[in-house]
Design a protein around this nucleic acid. Structure first.
Lengths: 212, 212
DNA sequence: GTTGATTTTATACCGAGTGTAAACATACTC
DNA sequence: GAGTATGTTTACACTCGGTATAAAATCAAC
């Protein structure tokens, strides 16, 4: 993502947006499987090949805006202050998920269940999610390894990275589930905080007390 | 998997084996992508439809004998004795991976790198691996939840299950990597044990000392 | 053997994704 | 501003994974 200068660049990013939004709309209305790439192309006024030019697979049409997670993740490792451990930095990051609650509830308001419930029903999208998580894990592991001064393929670092990503993902899904319940925002936030702290306390104190 | 009684059943399991072995041989010789399902069918003397009858996807042709992992996994939770924690039970399980060393080195002896290096190069097989791991995680989480007396979707249990599976996988890949080095078996086993214990000690003592 | 249930096959089909070469649009040069 | 180089889109044909369907082959049972 660099500065969009010339006309050519402008048109390109514009085309990309048009395709992504057209696809999102069609998926939302008819479901992922019922929409062919060909139909997305037609609706976007573009050829099928062009769609695949911008999005290497059909699944990538869905996960267009997902890179944001990475920056926050890496920041939690690199931009924390001296006496904060990586674990506690992640606790803070995960706790902050509840800021998204109102957005989540808005998305779910129109019955379309917004996003993930469409994903959850689809095997290939599920696979893509796992792939993305694996990617994030690798990148986090690289950052952790740099931090710890260990080689990038140190198994310990990989496990820790996987655990942190896993915690983040688990609590995000949890938040979505809580958000779907007919309860007050305050209750959801409280419950989310409680679960998050349970997890991070357990990880802090070690797994020899599991199950407690 | 039930008792093979009549002629019909016998032929069925026989056909399945023929297909799986034919596919394995072709994949080993030409790579996963270069072999079409059609060609597997022809080489096995069967129609394409029949292949898909036994194996729902092409990837499943590769991961035919992978269910064994689950039983060991669940046994580590349910069949441990009183004073052994789940964590230590898993440590034992992972340490036992090194028993497979000679088999791994045999597989790698003929330059074909046996199995996983074929998998590692292929995105769709990678995805399938992640899917299988996610499945195992879910099932382990269910067992852990029963153990801990918590609901099956307890985020803490999910995170712990993910961590344990992650540790197992990381150390398995590590063992494969170590096995590929031109060093003595004893050294590989020692290194594998060292890394395993580093991970499980860290998980036992908690992540607040990470990076140490 | 005849009947009935399974399994396999041939065949036709759909949709994702790729290769290629031509048409088109933008950028650059004089 | 015409002409050329460069990048992008398009049409088209193709491969391959996977499904649907109905007929043919195989096995079980009487």
């Amino acid at each position: 993502m660099q500065a969009v200068t010339g006309l050519r660049e402008r048109k390109k990013s514009q085309t990309r947006v048009v395709i992504a939004e057209t696809a999102a709309e069609l998926f939302r209305r008819h479901g992922f499987d019922a929409v062919t790439v060909e139909s997305v192309a037609q609706a976007a006024g573009v050829s099928k090949k062009t769609v695949f030019n911008y999005f290497p697979t059909k699944e990538d049409l869905v996960f267009d805006r997902t890179e944001d997670r990475l920056s926050g993740l890496l920041a939690a490792v690199t931009e924390r202050d001296e006496q904060t451990t990586v674990l506690e930095s992640f606790r803070t990051l995960v706790l902050a998920q509840s800021n998204q609650l109102s957005r989540l509830r808005d998305e779910m308001a129109d019955g379309s269940d917004g996003f993930l419930d469409l994903v959850r029903r689809n095997p290939s999208l599920q696979r893509r999610i796992h792939e993305i998580n694996a990617d994030l894990t690798r990148q986090l592991a690289a950052a952790l390894a740099a931090e710890a001064g260990t080689p990038a393929d140190d198994p310990l670092v990989l496990v820790v990275a996987g655990t942190l990503i896993g915690a983040q993902r688990a609590m995000y899904l949890r938040l979505r589930e809580l958000a779907a319940r007919p309860t007050s925002d305050a209750w959801v936030v409280r419950q989310h905080r409680r679960d998050t702290n349970r997890i991070f306390d357990q990880l802090r104190d070690g797994l020899s007390t599991f199950p407690s």
